[in-house]
Nucleic acid binder design. Structure first.
Lengths: 199, 199
DNA sequence: ATCCTTTCTTAACTTAAGTTAACGAGTTTA
DNA sequence: TAAACTCGTTAACTTAAGTTAAGAAAGGAT
């Protein structure tokens, strides 16, 4: 599927409209700042140790965060359409603890937070927008954390199937397993167990 | 230990100073809004299903969030001195999914977010303050989530001892165990295992 | 001081996840 | 086409957590 520039603009504006009402001028300021970029599957967007001020808004495709522990990739998050990854480094300029790569060919908005201060002074509503988005993301991330904590791997898997059935389809089992906090072998066993239970 | 009102004001202002520089007037506006309250150990601040717009800033003591799953309490967070709990309901007025109680006699600032809009219009820097605090909390909570995910219960425990040694002292084992995602029996066994390993 | 409740520990047994290794289906590459 | 690689599955064995039950230790209350 191809995305025209107009469509991409519209996806972004629809997302922002959930938080604040923007004037035409304000919308244009944001669209001017938004840099749309395409990445091939497998592209590494961010490496451990790297400093980057970029945040990513996914228009199409899927990106993934993972830590490299010894030689093992520990996947902690997937971001798909209309989801936002705002790595800590974007705020405080610390080196990244994790990697980010593209699991699919992806179209992203890469937002650099360098110029924000002048912009906020000129358009205070953008500061409000950022506050609301941040509060919302924080709240969602807390709830996700809570759900993870109070669940067993099996409950996490069932929950994933319910809440984000798309992920189970588009993401390889071994990445899903890592995301659920188990090995691919365990996930495979679990699936067999669940089929048996269901019957 | 007793806290005077002046000391409590100072703790709050010191915390805020990490984010923005406030004029005397702005400081006073905030101090006028800040409601200091004392709670006895065991007090339930928030119940599942309850709607509340309150956020809590801990001046002294310790509060805890937990879900009630069947009859079992699943502890997801502890907040101690200078930490902030901002439940999702404070933002979007949804009923709470979890309980909050005091593990110790505690002095908290209870901040109600109702009046914020007028205030932000009058003092834009407060909006900036909220944005920065929210971004910081979000970032910290993401990192905590990641660390939880990529660790085994044993690593989580060792990490807790290192990062927040105070918690291991002041919080009952069975709450700690729940927080680590295991049973009190498992934590007890684990501790024995670790002592043996060390020797 | 004694009782009672809360908290922590231990033990025996069950369940599920980790580990290592191997195999097969499906892709990609040479 | 054949070889190499990726991905998912299975199996045997090990390790650690869950479960149930019982008792010991520590704190509070009367």
């Amino acid at each position: 599927m191809q995305l025209t520039n107009d469509k991409m603009d519209q996806i972004l504006l629809n997302f922002l409209a959930k938080y604040v009402i923007l004037s035409e001028e304000e919308q244009n300021v944001i669209l001017d700042l938004a840099i749309f970029k395409s990445f091939k599957k497998g592209t590494i967007l961010l490496k451990e140790g790297q400093r980057s001020k970029d945040a990513y808004f996914v228009l199409q495709g899927c990106i993934r965060c993972y830590y490299l522990v010894d030689t093992e990739e520990k996947t902690t998050a997937f971001y798909t359409e209309t989801e936002t990854l705002n790595p800590p480094g974007a705020l405080n300029n610390t080196p990244s603890e994790y990697y980010v790569d593209c699991l699919e060919n992806s179209i992203l908005i890469v937002a650099n937070s360098e110029t924000d201060e002048e912009l906020f002074a000129k358009y205070p509503i953008l500061e409000k927008l950022c506050r609301l988005v941040s509060e919302d993301l924080h709240s969602k991330s807390q709830i996700a954390f809570d759900n993870f904590k109070i669940s067993t791997p099996e409950q996490r898997y069932l929950n994933l199937l319910e809440i984000r059935p798309d992920l189970a389809q588009r993401i390889p089992q071994y990445h899903l397993a890592s995301y659920l906090g188990i090995t691919p072998q365990s996930l495979s066993r679990m699936r067999k167990r669940l089929v048996k239970k269901a019957s």
